[in-house]
Design a binder for these strands. Structure first.
Lengths: 138, 138
DNA sequence: AATAGTTTGCAATACCATTGCGCTATAGTT
DNA sequence: AACTATAGCGCAATGGTATTGCAAACTATT
């Protein structure tokens, strides 16, 4: 099990330190994207900055992607397998529930092509749908 | 001229105070969305909080909409005429230039319909395209 | 074991958003 | 015109998030 997690890190060219194993393990257990504060609470007592840097490293190496859902805190979620360091190509839609404030990836929903006016060059697209998720709707 | 600005406010049910006239006048002169800090610099010396509340009021009354472009600071831009208090329906795409860091509305580009999985209810959609704008591209 | 490089934890900093509160200005009433 | 109620303003203060510097701890390599 731990073997597996460790391998996930090494495969992404990330030194599998104790901290990072913990963080990845925690990420694997999440059903939605989590913020740094969530992570800090979940791994208490841990240094927030260290967790921050672990996430940054993961992001840089293509293991997680960050999501700005407008809640004020950046959230992080594991990438699909096919992400590479530097270049994320998990351009899927993210959903933010206004009720439970959870953010989840909708990997099935790709972001539609947007054709911009002449002279504009697209480098990245961010699509956040906000509303009520299936757990909160009655 | 000032008459005109004043009317814009009263039509939106906003008391046309001196401060608010200044803020709206400044907004009208912008070619892209501006942050609170931009506004503060442009109207120096003015109290940041007062400007903040002016923007909030404008937003609440459907005169401007706010944009979270991921830069960390919320930006504001005037709405198209057809916005109502409370319910903004200017669901257009916003473009953030990674070079000049300016955010502009692309009102011609409507956000495509996203069909979510069963049980999800959409209330709002946010689409930010990031890249290089026509002024910065060579 | 010594060394070089990496990681960690603490401290500190910089923004941004937001609220409380007292003073002032304005509008509405008598 | 005087009074009162309401709205707006400016200052102070708070809370949250992101980010960097630095020194100690740790890891891997020779």
């Amino acid at each position: 099990m731990t073997e597996n997690i460790e391998e996930m890190l090494t495969r992404k060219d990330i030194n599998p330190t104790a901290m990072r194993l913990l963080v990845l393990d925690f990420l694997l257990k999440q059903s939605s994207a989590i913020s740094l504060t969530d992570l800090e609470k979940g791994l208490d007592p841990s240094d927030r900055i260290t967790l921050y840097r672990a996430l940054k490293k993961f992001e840089e190496k293509g293991l997680v992607h960050s999501i700005d859902d407008g809640s004020g805190a950046t959230k992080y979620a594991l990438c699909e397998n096919d992400c590479e360091a530097g270049h994320h190509h998990d351009l899927h839609v993210h959903f933010f529930c206004n009720t439970c404030r959870e953010t989840s990836c909708l990997p099935k929903h790709h972001i539609p092509q947007i054709t911009l006016p002449d002279g504009f060059k697209t480098e990245e697209v961010n699509l956040i749908v906000k509303g009520v998720c299936n757990k909160c709707v009655q």
